[in-house]
């Protein structure tokens, strides 16, 4: 088998693989920057919580309209935003911290979703929502993902300074104005990207493409901008590598993609140029000043 046969040909020959690759590349482009922001805000686990929260909405959409991209997306979006806003409100208005209120609301939402799915659907349906159907992406799903990534990138371009300032010093922005808007905008972007991703990778796996490249990027770059670039490239690379792995080793696609991202994360922890384990071992000598 020539390298072309192994690395390129499958994506040329098989339409469904081409779609899967395009979908995952789009997904990585939008969700990697969001993941980096979640990491620096110390909200890494909030992505996970939100992904669980999206489930009941998607399930309700599925019950009403079957496997309809629009219905499941709108349902997921509604449920995700409801949890984000409720958790944010409780955190602002009471003494409970945001992580705890997120945990509370997403668990309620998740239980609701499981209840709905088990009352009305079969387990196969639940698996679709949980693990996605990356090898069967239809046009509406691809358009949806592309739109969400476009919205994300435009929002980041317009509000970048606001989002960074609010991530770094929320108290300052609360006094100067714009804090609440930035907070809601950011959580909306998180939910949007998770909803866009669950068609491809499922509500559980989609968080992996958001968080693993972002966590790995810390070991490659000091500044936020380069962390975002690194995470995006890593997310795209993992998508490609994961699809190849799934094809050649005959493994399920979405976990293969996330495991590829996981392998990159592990390699970064060990060998990354910025304060990785190896790096700390090698650079033990100190400078003169």
């Amino acid at each position: 088998m020539t390298p072309y046969d192994a690395l390129v040909a499958p994506f040329v020959e098989y339409g469904f693989l081409k779609r899967a690759l395009v979908g995952c590349l789009i997904l990585a482009l939008g969700s990697a920057p969001i993941g980096v922001l979640l990491v620096v805000r110390r909200m890494s686990l909030v992505g996970d919580a939100m992904a669980h929260a999206v489930l009941p909405g998607a399930a309700i959409g599925f019950l009403f309209a079957g496997f309809s991209v629009a219905a499941m997306t709108l349902g997921g979006l509604a449920a995700g935003l409801a949890v984000a806003i409720a958790a944010g409100l409780v955190a602002r208005a009471t003494a409970l911290r945001e992580d705890a209120s997120f945990a509370a609301f997403y668990l309620v939402s998740l239980a609701g979703g499981v209840l709905i799915v088990s009352l009305h659907g079969s387990n196969i349906d639940l698996l679709h929502v949980l693990f996605g159907t990356v090898l069967a992406l239809n046009d509406p799903a691809l358009f949806l993902m592309a739109s969400i990534t476009s919205i994300t990138l435009i929002a980041l371009a317009l509000f970048y300074r606001l989002l960074i300032a609010e991530s770094f010093d929320p108290a300052f922005l609360r006094l100067q104005g714009g804090g609440a808007f930035a907070h809601v905008l950011f959580l909306t972007l998180v939910v949007l990207n998770l909803v866009g991703g669950f068609h491809a990778l499922g509500t559980l796996m989609v968080v992996g493409l958001m968080m693993l490249p972002a966590a790995a990027a810390r070991f490659w770059a000091d500044t936020l901008e380069w962390q975002i670039v690194t995470a995006t490239l890593a997310g795209m690379g993992s998508s490609y590598a994961g699809l190849l792995l799934s094809l050649h080793a005959d493994l399920p696609a979405s976990p293969s993609i996330i495991l590829s991202a996981g392998a990159f994360y592990l390699a970064s922890v060990l060998f990354g140029p910025n304060e990785s384990l190896l790096n700390q071992l090698l650079k033990r000598q100190h400078l003169e000043a």
Binding site: L162, A165, F168, D169, A171, F172, L173, L175, A221, Q227
Partner: peptide, 30 residues
């Protein structure tokens, strides 16, 4: 307002100039 122990994450990947320029917020806006 300069708070007592600003509730800041000292590991946040942001440059000194970016922090200081937040002081121009009212003039530059978003």
């Amino acid at each position: 307002y300069l708070p007592q122990q600003a509730d800041l994450d000292r590991t946040f990947p942001i440059r000194v100039a970016d922090v200081v320029s937040m002081g121009l917020w009212r003039k530059t806006g978003m």
